[in-house]
C-alpha cells in the first residue's frame, strides 16, 4: 500500500484513502468541435503509459476530496513529488 503525500492536506496518508485518476496534464480541449476525429480520439484515449517517471492524477477521496498531480516512477512505484492542480509540472531530473 503506497504512502501518498496529499499536497492539500500536507500529510502522508495510506493509498486506501486515495483514488487513482489517470495520466495528468491532459487538458480537455477548449473547443472540441474544432478538433478532428483523430485529435479528439488522442485526447480521449491515447496515454503515454510511461515506464519510468509518470505524471498522473490522484484524488484524495477519503480525505479532502481534492484532485492533485503526482510524479511517480512506474517501475519502483516511488513518488518523486505531488503537487496541486494548476501548479507547473515539475521537471524530470535526468
Amino acid at each position: 500500500m503506497l504512502l501518498i503525500r496529499c499536497p492539500y492536506c500536507q500529510e502522508e496518508r495510506p493509498e486506501i484513502e486515495f483514488s487513482y485518476a489517470g495520466e495528468a496534464h491532459i487538458a480537455r480541449p477548449l473547443n472540441p468541435d474544432d478538433l478532428s476525429d483523430e485529435s479528439w480520439a488522442e485526447y480521449l484515449f491515447i496515454r503515454s503509459n510511461r515506464r519510468g517517471l509518470h505524471y498522473e492524477r490522484w484524488l484524495h477521496a477519503h480525505g479532502c476530496a481534492q484532485f492533485f498531480n503526482a510524479l511517480r516512477d512506474t517501475v519502483s512505484d516511488k513518488f518523486e513529488t505531488t503537487y496541486k492542480i494548476g501548479e507547473a509540472r515539475p521537471q524530470v531530473k535526468k
Binding site: A21, L59, F67
Partner: peptide
Amino acid sequence: FRMMEDYRQTEWP
C-alpha cells in the same frame, strides 16, 4: 459525483 468534482476542480476551476 466524482466526475463532476473532477471537471470542477481540474478543467473549470
